[in-house]
């Protein structure tokens, strides 16, 4: 009888323990942000973390700088900026790269377009990594303007540059 009671007691304690574990699992999640959204908002509106193609091109042969290609391995094999490393989106937070992201090198993130690179910049910086920059232009822009030395002839416009005089276009269309 006494034994039965002890077994029941043990069972209850174990069940409670498991319930507890489930209830607290999100609190101890591994990928929590280091910085608040408010802090990041101040950073995105005050800091210049975007590098134009011209600015970034100057850093290609520099050992203190590394380019991070966030596209798929297949795209990376097709073309990548020289000496770039390939870390696709879903592997950026892997344990293998923690040390890499914490070293002193300046890191320039690029992808298919400015938007992906910028989003990854925002998330990784909020996650706590420093010394990150985002390329304002994608791999295709790089080929066109840097590999083919087209920088000064046309000039690559950043993602947020207005490509039209919006108000004038609308007035013109009215007539």
């Amino acid at each position: 009888m006494k034994h039965l009671n002890l077994i029941a007691l043990g069972g209850i304690v174990i069940i409670l323990g498991i319930l507890f574990g489930i209830a607290t699992i999100r609190i101890t999640s591994k990928y929590r942000f280091e910085r608040s959204a408010q802090e990041m908002l101040e950073r995105v509106t005050s800091e210049s973390k975007q590098l134009s193609l011209i600015e970034a091109a100057e850093w290609v042969d520099n050992d203190d700088v590394v380019f991070i290609d966030i596209r798929t391995p297949k795209e990376f094999v097709g073309f990548h900026i020289q000496n770039a490393v390939n870390i696709p989106y879903d592997r950026l937070l892997d344990d293998d790269y923690v040390e890499f992201f914490n070293n002193d090198q300046k890191k320039i993130i690029y992808g298919t377009s400015s938007v992906g690179a910028n989003a990854v910049w925002l998330i990784l910086t909020q996650y706590g990594y420093e010394n990150l920059f985002a390329l304002d232009g994608g791999a295709a822009d790089w080929i066109k303007h840097v590999e083919n030395k087209d920088i000064f002839s046309e000039g690559h416009k950043g993602d947020e540059a207005a490509l039209y005089d919006y108000a004038t276009v609308m007035e013109g269309e009215d007539e």
Binding site: F33, A37, M40, L41, V44, Q50, S113, S114, V115, N118, A119, L122, I123, Q126, D136, G158, D159, E160, A161, A162, L163
Partner: peptide, 18 residues
């Protein structure tokens, strides 16, 4: 929305995260 997609997606990501 913004002129391109950078400013607007920053707004979107921060809101989503909150």
């Amino acid at each position: 929305y913004s002129n391109g997609t950078i400013l607007s997606s920053e707004a979107g990501i921060l809101c989503r995260q909150l």
